[in-house]
């Protein structure tokens, strides 16, 4: 039984999008269009999750996620002892 095709959805940050049309032009499946200057996933079902739109977007305005995929946030080590005592105050 063919594995059920993955379904992708798009996270759009309209405030970031500047309507440069790169994602629309280079999407291999013509999923995206510009609607009043902002990217809009018109045919999300055609998306194959190649993420070229996400990688090429100069404004981080579009992200492609498979259903249930939760991206891991950046790693950040906890507070480290300071070389110089923080409480020491001067002037």
């Amino acid at each position: 039984m063919a594995e059920k095709p993955k379904v992708f959805f798009h996270i759009i940050r309209e405030r970031y999008c500047k309507g440069c049309n790169i994602c629309v032009a280079f999407c291999p499946k013509q999923v995206l269009v510009l609607k009043d200057g902002k990217v809009f996933p018109e045919r999300p079902e055609a998306c194959i999750g190649c993420k070229m739109c996400e990688l090429r977007c100069p404004d981080f305005a579009i992200e492609v996620r498979a259903k249930g995929e939760e991206p891991v946030a950046a790693t950040e080590s906890g507070p480290i002892d300071f070389g110089v005592p923080p409480e020491a105050h001067h002037v």
Binding site: P79, F82, G83, P86, H89, H90
Partner: peptide
């Protein structure tokens, strides 16, 4: 000599 104090809160 003066040692540079770091701000306590990050």
């Amino acid at each position: 000599p003066l040692r540079r104090a770091a701000p306590a809160t990050r």
